[in-house]
Simulated scan of single mutants.
Amino acid sequence: MSVPGLSINFATVRQGGSFGAIVDACLRHGITAISPWREHVEVAGLAEAARIISENGLRVSGHCRGGFFPALDEAGRRAAFESNRRAVDEAAALGAACLVIVVGGLPAGSRDLPGARAMVADGMAELLPYARAAGVPLAIEPLHPCYAADRACINMLGQALDLADTLGEGVGVAIDVYHVWWDPDLAAQIARAGRNGQILAHHICDWLVPTKDILNDRGMMGDGVIDLKAFRQMIEAAGFHGPQEVEIFSHDWGARPIDEVLATCVERFEALC
């Protein structure tokens, strides 16, 4: 029995081992859409990962991740660009719906947030022609403001859409409930993204109260305070009907057997999302 509309981000089940082992576990639970991370693809080998996807008829809802454009010097920025080119190549080979872009934060020692955002815009503008030629849409993922310094200096959906509008064709957004559920302008910005066909991915989990670790204490759907059904209604009203991708960074869930995690994902998705 398959579970239509559900995708598993490999961050949720890193404990499951290799690329092939994670795919096998997903298939045992009827999950036929995945979003791998570059680390898993690197270990498996790109050709082998692509073969596994093709032979099992899997849908790839996204590839994680590109970005991290800001750097202290030109050498650092060139290294980021080359890494992003390779990420585009991987996404194309895997048939991914998009390359998720976590843009990066402040370079080490910097306090220049506007400067970091300018480097993001410049880096994406330089990468975009290569991504367009490869047929890989770039999905900017705004991250919660607590990550502005180290992971992403784009923190609200409106900011991400402003940049996508500036860059044009081939750029949209990945909307992760964990990062944007609190935004008072959320409904208007989701509707805006829908009007322009810019919703490329939708990630789900939950926000725990209290949250003990801002990076690794995401909640399983239903264990926190996010109204996931209302969120899905907004996303679908905006025209996005792609998979809901479970992405849970969690010391708790990461310590549990992969089959327990996947069974819970299926149960909660069907009941609550």
Rank of each mutant, 00 (worst) to 15 (best):
P184G: 12
P137A: 00
E270D: 08
V3W: 14
A238S: 07
C153G: 12
F269Q: 04
H241K: 03
L6V: 12
R59F: 05
I8M: 14
A201T: 05
V177P: 00
T211P: 03
R51V: 06
A263S: 13
D183F: 00
A21C: 03
V173P: 13
E260L: 07
A75S: 06
L6H: 03
P184Q: 13
E90F: 03
D227R: 09
D252P: 10
R78C: 04
W181L: 12
L6Q: 05
H179W: 12
F249L: 08
A201P: 08
P137H: 00
E260M: 07
S54L: 06
L27W: 03
S83Q: 07
I226R: 05
L46A: 13
S7K: 11
G168P: 00
V180Y: 03
D183S: 02
D122R: 11
G123R: 00
R14S: 07
D73H: 09
R78Y: 04
P210M: 04
A238H: 09
H144T: 00
I226S: 07
A108R: 15
M1N: 11
Q159T: 02
G95P: 12
R268N: 12
W207Q: 06
R77F: 08
R86S: 14
I101C: 07
R59Q: 13
T12W: 09
V209N: 14
V246S: 02
V266G: 12
P36T: 06
E169N: 01
D162G: 05
G66K: 02
P142C: 01
V261C: 07
L228S: 14
V266Q: 11
A108K: 15
E74L: 11
D206I: 05
A97G: 15
V136D: 11
Q244T: 11
Q15L: 00
V225W: 05
G254L: 00
R232M: 14
I204W: 03
D150L: 09
E270S: 09
L27V: 10
D24V: 03
F81L: 14
F231D: 03
C26A: 10
D206P: 06
F249I: 06
R65M: 10
A97P: 15
H241D: 04
A164V: 01
D150N: 15
N56C: 04
A121Q: 10
D217C: 11
E90K: 09
C98I: 05
G242L: 08
M220R: 06
G20Q: 14
L161S: 07
I190C: 04
I8C: 14
A191K: 10
N56R: 15
G45P: 00
L262K: 06
A237N: 08
L113S: 08
F231H: 02
L186Y: 01
A11C: 10
A187K: 11
A131M: 12
K212Y: 12
A80D: 15
A160G: 14
L161W: 10
I31G: 13
P142F: 02
E236K: 08
Q244S: 15
R256F: 00
I235L: 12
R151H: 15
A193W: 07
P70S: 06
L161C: 06
I214H: 10
I258L: 00
M220E: 11
